[in-house]
Design a protein around this nucleic acid. Structure first.
Lengths: 125, 125
DNA sequence: CTCATCTTTAGATGAATGTCAAATTGTATG
DNA sequence: CATACAATTTGACATTCATCTAAAGATGAG
């Protein structure tokens, strides 16, 4: 289970790309980033996140997600758990139902990792 | 082979999340985004991109990548091709060598997709 | 042309994963 | 407690994929 706000993603490097912290352990850092990206790299999970970012109350249950994705509840639950393990969503129990909600900060930080800025003197586009 | 600048990612929606265009075909759009994320969602490929964003000349060859990742050249080439198919890198041939270079705009746009902004009246963090 | 180097492809293999049906657990209500 | 509904787990299955070795292409040097 990944932490909600990993240091490796939060820090900003010196030169070009903010693709996570490179100074400490590049290997571990790359695994961390890849793990989070993998959690998002599936059409069903992208749609869940899209819906969560836009829907009325910004929450979704396993049953709702199953109907939304037109998939079994076991599958919907699998995807929600996958997102949860990457700290992209968090669960909230209310009676029988479990509502999942986006962790916007985590999503934004993951996005920030891809906002590569190159140094002034390089030939990058 | 994905196009270099897909419309689906370039456009900006109305309300909350800019997780790609949702108005046209949500299903196809989600597949598009997930496909690109998948191309990046591997530790070796993250390290390649990290290196490309920072290294001296912002280019890398199959042989260099193999040494850098400590992996066979076939494997390194596989990863570079995967990134190329997602338009994240582009090849440039010079004599025997093929130099791969980042498409910064594609990377930035993919990152922008995750920069979820919620509407003022919602309860998101 | 022949050799050396770099790149790419082909085929094989093991691990991860998306999906489902079925069974199990959790929670509330009669 | 018994029933109903929601969530989760389990086990199976097919697919994808990271990796390797071996072989084949591509390109320049002698």
């Amino acid at each position: 289970m990944l932490s909600t706000l990993p240091v490796v993603i939060a820090t900003t490097p010196a030169c070009c790309a903010p693709l996570g912290e490179r100074s400490h352990d590049p290997e571990a850092n790359a695994i961390e980033i890849a793990t989070r990206l993998k959690a998002l790299a599936d059409p069903s999970r992208v749609r869940i996140v899209q819906d969560l970012a836009c829907c009325e109350d910004h929450e979704i249950t396993t049953t709702d997600a199953a109907a939304f994705l037109e998939v079994s509840e076991a599958t919907a639950n699998h995807h929600l758990k996958r997102l949860q393990r990457a700290a992209i969503v968090s669960p909230r129990r209310d009676a029988q139902r479990v509502y999942y909600r986006l962790n916007l900060d985590v999503l934004r930080q993951l996005g920030a990792v891809l906002q590569v800025k190159c140094c002034a003197d390089c030939h990058c586009a």
